[in-house]
Amino acid sequence: MKTRIIIILIFIGFFMAFQLYLGIFRSSPVQSNYKVVRAYDEFEIRSYTPLTGSVNNLVAVLKFGGYASPRVVQFYNDKLETILFQNAISQSGDFHCLQYNSPYQIVGRSNEILVGIGAMHNLVAGSTTNSAIDVTF
């Protein structure tokens, strides 16, 4: 009985050390090419500069943790769609799910749901057709 407990404790120790390795030592600073245009309580709007150097692309981003199963992704798609509707921001394009961690990492996982927003392209160019959003760079 004691040997089973010792084997289980050794296994748990190796498992926790592996999680620590995945969560801390393998995480590197993310180099990104976006600016946060506006941060809300539940989501933020980002401006991405494409590699071609043309017009900035604006996206709405909703962050969430844990594993991104299809059911969870659909839940956050619906949640972001509802939030955008409530804030009178029109979406353009499809929803995308970004997963940043190894599938073996259990704690500290980060994911994002992105969708392009079409109503704000005029604000970046200088027009003020939608006064609900204040865009400053």
Rank of each mutant, 00 (worst) to 15 (best):
S127A: 10
P103A: 07
L98N: 08
N87F: 02
H121W: 07
G126T: 10
Y76M: 01
L114Q: 13
G126Q: 08
V115L: 01
K79C: 01
I117N: 09
F137P: 00
I133R: 05
Q99H: 07
I89R: 07
D134F: 07
A125Y: 10
T128G: 03
L84D: 05
R109V: 10
S110D: 12
I117H: 07
I117A: 14
S90V: 12
A132K: 15
V107R: 03
V115F: 02
P103L: 11
I117P: 00
E112Y: 04
S131Q: 09
V107H: 06
S127D: 09
G108V: 10
L84I: 06
P70V: 06
R71W: 01
T129M: 03
D94I: 09
F95R: 06
Q91C: 00
L123W: 02
Q105S: 12
D134P: 00
G108K: 07
M120D: 13
V124F: 12
I117E: 09
N122P: 00
H121C: 02
I106V: 15
N101Q: 13
G118L: 09
Y100V: 06
I133L: 14
M120P: 00
V115E: 08
G93N: 06
V124E: 13
S131Y: 04
C97P: 00
Q105G: 11
N101I: 06
P70Q: 08
S90G: 13
T129H: 03
Q74P: 00
A125W: 07
N111L: 04
Q74I: 00
V73H: 04
S69T: 15
V135M: 12
T128P: 00
Q86A: 15
S102H: 14
G116L: 06
T82H: 05
G116F: 05
H121E: 15
T128W: 04
